[in-house]
Design a protein around this nucleic acid. Sequence first.
DNA 1: CCTAAATAATTCGGACCCGAAACGATCCGC
DNA 2: GCGGATCGTTTCGGGTCCGAATTATTTAGG
Lengths: 116, 116
Amino acid sequence: MPIDLRPSQALRLWHDVTFDLVRADLPELTQRQMAVLLAVYLDPPPHTVRGLAAKLGVTKPVITRALDTMGAMGLVTRKRDESDRRNVLVHRTVAGSLAVERLGDAIQTRHRNLPP
Amino acid sequence: MPIDLRPSQALRLWHDVTFDLVRADLPELTQRQMAVLLAVYLDPPPHTVRGLAAKLGVTKPVITRALDTMGAMGLVTRKRDESDRRNVLVHRTVAGSLAVERLGDAIQTRHRNLPP
DNA sequence: CCTAAATAATTCGGACCCGAAACGATCCGC
DNA sequence: GCGGATCGTTTCGGGTCCGAATTATTTAGG
C-alpha cells in the first residue's frame, strides 16, 4: 500500500493529470464517460448497460449514449448476449486499452513527480 | 515523496474518485472546468482569463464560459482589476474552497484504501 | 400459447459547450 | 490626444448531453 497522500498532494495530482487530459487535444470525455470507460477496463466482465447504470447511479439512456460516443471513438464495442438476447455486452478494444494505459502512465508519472 | 504507484493502482485510484464524483449528484463539471477550478485554488494568484487560457491551451471564450458556469455555482467570483481595468481577476469563494477540500479528502481516502 | 416483466434503444424539448469571428472597453507609445 | 495593441465578452451556427417518457425486442410464467 502506498504511503499516505496529504490532501494538498492529492489535489496537486488531480490538477496535474486533469491538465494533461485537457492539453492533450484528444476528444474530451465527460466524467460519466470516463467512469464508464474505467469500469469496463478495470472491473471484470461481463458489462451490461443495466449493470453499468446501476453501478454509476444513472439512468440507462446515459449509458447508451456514452457507449454510442465511445463506440464512435473506437474505445468500446457492443454485442448482443446470445444466451439472453435482451442484454448487450460491452467489450474492450485495442484502442481503448491503449487509451487507458496512457492514462495510467500519466497518473503514475504525475504521482512520482509530486512535491514532497 | 510517496512510494511509486503501479499503473493498475493509478487507474484504480482514478476510477474510484471519478465514481465518487459521478455518484455525488452535484452538478457535473467538465474536464476543462475542473482544470480551471483547480488552477484557481492551487496556483498562486492573480488569475486572469488570458493567463488561464494560456495555461490550459484553450481559447479565451472557453475560460469566460467556464467562469460563467462556475460563478453561477458559487465556486468562483470575478472582479475587475482596478490597476488595469482591462483585466478580470478570478477570486476564490468559501463554497469553492469547501468543494476543493472535499475533493482532496476523497482522493486521499481512495488512495489510502488502494489494494496492495 | 399469451400475457407480464425485463432490457436496451429512441424520441422529445431544453440546456450547455464548442470554435471562430466580431465587438467594446482600456491601456500605452508616440 | 490618437491610433494600434491588449483584454474580456458576446454572437453565431452547429453539435452533444440531459431527464423523462415511450418503443421494440426478448424472456419467463401461468
